[in-house]
Design a protein around this nucleic acid. Structure first.
Lengths: 227, 227
DNA sequence: TCAAAAGTGTTCTGGATACACCCATGA
DNA sequence: TCATGGGTGTATCCAGAACACTTTTGA
């Protein structure tokens, strides 16, 4: 019986920060890609479910659990890792946006990984990703495409937002990820009609007019017709 | 470094025949699932791209090449194969419908595999799939869902049809796969507006009024707004 | 008072749906 | 002549897109 390739899981972890869609990168320590950036990942040991490997990796790099995690697809080009044939099952994850503290997540992640297996860890806007190790640029493109598509027909945005948020923040996330502006009135009309939100009794106060705060009624993935 | 699971590819091969959506099943020869039906597949040897394994399997079972082939996703539950941890990368394929000779394909496939690695090979309507080996029922469900979705926003039907076909046949395929009837006038209007077809100078003659034959202008996957 | 984001309704348009009759053929 | 599938056009409805002004606040 012929030997099989090794199996790895790689996770594209997205968040919104500083007005941009960001992905978490780690610096590869050794091998042909030493010094290059890549998405966090690791080999799948015999007996472990794929999601578990992905969840482990996610917890290790961000300290977060119970985030949105979805399999993208597998990348199996034998040459994607020059060292040996490694199949990568790609996942993407969405972690919540802390509007109040830009870069807090990046710092937390970095701190977490101080003694970790990667040299450095960093959030990078997906619009300015460097040339990555392995075929991770292809994985990034695929992940972004999937994210954009799912934004249009599911409610997964909830996983990018904190419990309470304003309609402006919700719309901003759509605009950032889709890369285009949306009409505010139509957006609110649509969101209202979908009935996914409930208005809280609080407002967000800022330098301008206070904004009504909302929360999702159900924080669980569903298909809707958002766009 | 921990050992990885083995890697297999399994292919759900769809066709339309006898007014139903059919999938190709093979009988498992040995192991805990001996005697049960499953989708054709096999282990991925080191150094071989996933698509190549899938293409090989497809050629071996149907004798067809250059058919539509698309990766679904990977199924990695360690218990899906009781014998040992085998990751399955699932694909689905669409092979063309020979309207004139029902079951011709099934017979051809069976003949092809006479000396093959499977005990028996058979086309089975997806609506009456038996309990399959491994987690192949889950793969079937996923494949069907994907097929239905892609029918709505791509032109991949072309891969289920011969070069020349009537609008009635085209519509029938949509109805069979989607499991619901479509208005004939609206369907033709829509198809015409998309401009994917060109009318041939021939007609199909049958027991009733002859029908105009059409061909796809481009037999290559594209995103369109079909439904 | 000014700058900046919050909040709100109406009109228009295009695509989707619903719907019924005549035609050409082989049996 | 009949049964069967092929072929066609119009009215309606609804969702998406376009669009401008007032309000509230902190600075």
């Amino acid at each position: 019986m012929a030997k099989s390739p090794k199996v790895a899981v790689d996770v594209v972890i997205f968040t919104i920060d500083a007005g941009a869609l960001q992905a978490l990168l780690v610096e590869v320590k050794r091998g042909p890609f030493a010094g290059r950036w890549a998405f966090p990942g690791g080999l799948v040991p015999v007996g472990e479910p794929l999601e578990e490997t992905a969840t482990r990796e996610l917890l290790a790099q961000t300290g977060l659990r119970d985030v949105y995690l979805e399999q993208l697809r597998s990348f199996g080009d034998p040459a994607r890792d020059p060292h040996t044939h490694v199949l990568s099952v790609a996942y993407f994850a969405l972690v919540p946006h802390k509007g109040e503290a830009p870069c807090a997540k990046a710092q937390r992640a970095a701190a977490h990984s101080a003694g970790g297996k990667y040299a450095r860890v960093q959030w990078v806007p997906v619009s300015t990703l460097p040339r990555l190790a392995y075929d991770h640029n292809a994985i990034a493109a695929y992940a972004l495409q999937r994210l954009r598509a799912k934004l249009a027909y599911t409610n997964i945005v909830y996983s990018l937002l904190p419990q309470a948020f304003t309609l402006g923040e919700l719309q901003e996330i759509y605009e950032i990820i889709l890369g285009r502006g949306l009409d505010r009135r139509n957006f609110r009309k649509k969101v209202g009609a979908l009935g996914l939100l409930r208005a809280l009794r609080r407002q967000r106060r800022g330098p301008h007019r206070p904004a009504q705060l909302y929360a999702f009624t159900r924080r669980t993935p569903m298909n809707i017709g958002m766009l």
